[in-house]
Amino acid sequence: MKIVMIRFVKRLIAGLIMILVVASFTFLLVRLMPGDPVQAKYDQLLLNGLTPIQAMDEVRVMYGFIPHQPLWIQYVHYLSQILHLNLGQSISYEGTPVMRIILGAAPWTIILVLTGTIASFIVGVLAGVIAAIKRNSLAGSAITISGSVLHGIPLFVMALFLAYVLTTIYAILPFGAPYNAALTPGFNGPFLSSLARHALLPVFTYALSSYGGWLLTMKSSVISVLGDDFILASEVRGLKTSTRIGYIAHNAILPLFTILALSIGFMFGGSLFIEDIFDYPGLGNLLVNAINSRDYPLMSGAFLLITVAVIASNIITDFLYSVVDPRIRR
């Protein structure tokens, strides 16, 4: 257990360094952006009739740093603001703290990524086991082909196709908006079911787009474990088929956790696409809107928070991995 903790702490430190790097990067990005948005905002406020001091205060609140100060003082100020969880104020949502906007959007993305990933992981892994064990049969080949095809279709094509079929041709599912606006949000039946119905299409698209990857990876992992000596040994010792399948599945699924950890970044990428296409109000959508409206504080805040989320989930996955694989525990 001690080794697991040491590993965990190491990862944590590496993660914090990474976050610092990304924070510095977003700081520089906004500062070095052509046309310097901070300076531009400052000038605009002056033109609106504010005194230089008022304008400076306004800009500082908005971006979290002060123009006309040496760069490093701005940098230190910016970092201390981040430590206080203050990401400045949004430009497009006049005066709203960036943190509040992001926290409002985050749950939608988390719902999407979490349910989509869990669903595709479970179904993909089970299908992968069957595809590997029955790889010489018709059913096995059919499953493998389903995985390859779905894996090969670009996300936006799949999203548009599903949207077209399920909201236009058959009109089974609602399109856009996270829930029916006529309902009062809260813990009541109609609202929750509306919530679920609206989430179904994005989640389903998301799950379908990652199902093929899990299936194909699990299949090849199972096939490689099937060739391991200990599987032959378990047969020679007369272990029950169910026990042997348990051995195979346990050993085959481990590499997938590594891939899970590695692909969390991509998952947010995928979510960004889907939220944009389905107009679903998550972080991805927020980021796209922020970019379109040149809302730099919101942009860098969202970017930073997505980074933190990716790094945190990486650390957690890695920690879980070292719990399930005894070989790492030495």
């Binding site: 000596d229 200990f230 032959l232 346990h250 050993n251 694989d325």
Partner: peptide, 10 residues
Amino acid sequence: AAQNSLNPLR
């Protein structure tokens, strides 16, 4: 290959 005859995870 008896050296590798055991399930590494159990």
